[in-house]
Design a binder for these strands. Sequence first.
DNA 1: TAACTTTGATGCTATATAACATAAACAGAG
DNA 2: CTCTGTTTATGTTATATAGCATCAAAGTTA
Lengths: 233, 233
Amino acid sequence: MFNSDFDLEGHFEERESIFTVLSPEELKELEKARQVIRCRRNEIIYKEGDTPTGMVYLHEGKVKIYKEGVGGREQIIRMVKSRGLVGFRSLLAGENHISSAVALEESIVHCIPEDFLFNTLLKNNNFSLRLLQNLAQELGFSNKRTISLTQKHIRGRLAESLLLLRDKYGFENDNATLKVYLSREDIANLSNMTTSNAIRTLSTFSNEKVIAIDGRKIRLLDVEALEKISMLG
Amino acid sequence: MFNSDFDLEGHFEERESIFTVLSPEELKELEKARQVIRCRRNEIIYKEGDTPTGMVYLHEGKVKIYKEGVGGREQIIRMVKSRGLVGFRSLLAGENHISSAVALEESIVHCIPEDFLFNTLLKNNNFSLRLLQNLAQELGFSNKRTISLTQKHIRGRLAESLLLLRDKYGFENDNATLKVYLSREDIANLSNMTTSNAIRTLSTFSNEKVIAIDGRKIRLLDVEALEKISMLG
DNA sequence: TAACTTTGATGCTATATAACATAAACAGAG
DNA sequence: CTCTGTTTATGTTATATAGCATCAAAGTTA
């Protein structure tokens, strides 16, 4: 096993939300207990250091989860898509939030009270198992990511990020344009590099015809090449 | 919250094993089901890519868990102490191992069959909750670590690793000597740097009277200074 | 429309750290 | 004990990438 790369095929896919394992009664309770919140673009959902008020579920939209590092430099540690979980780790660990969550576009999140969560965990073992699986996969992702972000070179890190965005959000109808529109700064923060270097390297990829850029629209022209670049670091 | 550092006080402490939440009958079953294995120094417990055969519990000893990165360079992602879990993530995620585990000294591990694990998870909700908490804390650790390893400079990374080793394994009776004896290479692999740089930086710390080194014996002379170095990156 | 702010693009310089080389100290095998 | 391989130590060089500066383009607000 030399390939330390991501299992690019839907590794942490989750077409269905974690709540599909709930019974009809539990779902009813959930609907009563949850609080539906609409978030605007760039709105903060929670911040590093906050005490979690409940579990946060992203019903619709896109969210970035990041941590502030040395000198306030932010590192995006996870991207969330519709039907995904945003804030759940800290609650389960019994800690305050260690990261911040911000909506990347108009989003709808559900805030699920702590009580409901723990009651359901105690009642419904399948729910517990499902959450365990989710966390375990997330931990695997984080471990793999640590290696990539520390050991790969700029080109490899950027290529990996682009593939990661494809896996997470997929393509537009043309089957090539990433279905997510990030600023160069966000791309840099996702890939552990400065904004200048993200811009520069995207340009290089574009010159090499590996991708095509049009503002924030990124089309993956040669996925195989990207995978190669990502692999070789 | 500017301090993105570790909660140095027993963040992922676990004096008691996760099995304390089992009932007397479950414990009996566990004793029947588990396989006790003695590992010698440097013995491989499992390797990246292996299919997990069960949950691995470290009864006694010290274990490093690492992943191979670009060009075979290894990154230690976790250190395990007595009564800790070694292999559990992959089983819960339903994946193959994404990391390897090696005994750092003579160790005794218990291999707990998959059946027992999942049966107990379905029967005993407190066990599930406990495991959820464990995983959630581990994920938090991994996220924090990603930031440290990517953003801190060599001195900061090494200082953090030394503090991490103290938190995990504690001191000898002199209340200063780390109770773990790693090669410079392991220290480097833990801190995301080359062996030369680990050696060089340890020397520097020694010259600065922050630590004292005598072969693999490392005494922390000025913990406050180390914390400062770790903090400032 | 104009003034202003943010984002994107590109070049240049500085620097942290990897990579390499050499040698001493140490450990294990015969 | 001697031989041989590994670990530790230290100096030198090369390089990837951060940091900074400048400018153009695109959005935003007045």
